[in-house]
Simulated scan of single mutants.
Amino acid sequence: MRDELARRDVDVVTVPYNRGDIRNKNEKGILTRPAEIAANIPTVVDATRSLYELIRDRNIDIVHTNSFKSAVLVSFPARITGTPLLFHARSSRAYSDHGILDRYVCESADRIIANSEFTASTYSPWSEKTTVIYNGVNTDVFDPAEVTPRDIIAEHDLRNDQPVIGTVGRLTPRKRQIDLVRALPEIQKSHPDVQVLFVGGSYKGLGTAHEREIAATMRELGVEDCITFTGYVDDVHRYLAAFDVSVLPSLKEPFGRVVVESLLMETPVVGTADGGIPEIVTHGETGYLVPPEEPRVIADSVTRLLDNPSRMTEFGQRGREESLERFDAATITEQEQAVYHDVLAL
């Protein structure tokens, strides 16, 4: 978003949690001044003072926060300087209810931007000041015409003539990757040579209880040989292009950015009918929606797609068309700028 705003000659001051979050942004004409927050500042008081000085000294017109933590820190400085505050809710209160702090942030904000109708529904006490604007994606990066899937296939020693199922996200209980593992034996009945990529997260020494549970389930079901864990990657678009089907079995996903990214890469999606995912996937047209925590239904939906390559192509192409229209970063930035103008006019 900041790059899009800069292209529109908006003077953007970016305040990351630490200096490592901003790389070479000054070269793009974006003004940055890191506020050494949390781990890098001894106290929240110092962070608040730093933010107050930044808002005052730079004559900031509007403060747009992109996380709950940043909203907590900047609410008071924005209030005492009389600067309008936008709280961008990118996670729902279904999993992160902060009690009195939620009330403090939402009452302090002049406007709340929610990244989905689902997220907005969890902020219902403040519905009169809440606007839904979906997350934007750089559609120039997520362009299947610019990617060669064979590169990823070769990098991970996969077979080019066998189907690839993939899921993207950190290995956490809420992402429910374990449901995809449990779906594999059923998928293998029709597609015994199916290959699976788990992209993102960590699989280092089975460091968490959830990772150990995934590993134990893989051994129990005998599907270890068909699953590859990539670890964190910064070129997700290349992996999505290599997927035949993208699976997101998450619970209460606030938005589901990887769903949009999958569709932009013309990869059909099997996702849970939960959280924000149904706002992205059109069931039976760009993918299939399945009940949460139902591995058998995941297996049935994935198999239906793998059994019908022309349907996969049709779903993928339609998904890209819809996503280009709804989620392009430039379009989303226009919507956010409209909110800026509304707030400044108050």
Rank of each mutant, 00 (worst) to 15 (best):
Y134L: 00
V269E: 06
D234C: 00
R19E: 13
A183H: 05
I280N: 09
A273V: 00
D61S: 15
V10D: 07
L171R: 14
S75P: 00
E53F: 03
G166K: 09
Y203Q: 05
F142Y: 15
V199A: 09
E285M: 01
T230L: 02
L86H: 11
D234A: 09
N26G: 06
A47I: 03
L346K: 14
R2T: 11
L306G: 12
N138P: 00
A89R: 07
D234S: 10
I133R: 10
L73M: 15
D102M: 02
G207A: 15
I133S: 07
Y340E: 10
Y104A: 11
T83V: 12
Y203I: 06
T32N: 11
T272D: 07
F87S: 13
L197V: 07
P34K: 07
A241Y: 04
T43E: 07
E293V: 03
I298Q: 11
G82N: 09
V74L: 04
T272S: 12
P278Q: 10
I55F: 04
H191T: 04
R33W: 06
I30N: 10
P173D: 13
P163Y: 14
I178Q: 08
L346Q: 15
P42Q: 14
G29W: 08
E322H: 03
V105K: 07
T119V: 04
L54S: 07
A114C: 02
D46K: 11
R320W: 04
A47P: 00
A38Q: 13
A78M: 08
R33G: 05
I165K: 04
I227S: 13
Y95K: 07
K252W: 04
E186N: 01
S310C: 00
V147T: 13
P249I: 03
E285K: 12
T331W: 01
V290Q: 14
P192G: 12
R23L: 06
T131W: 05
D234T: 14
R182E: 15
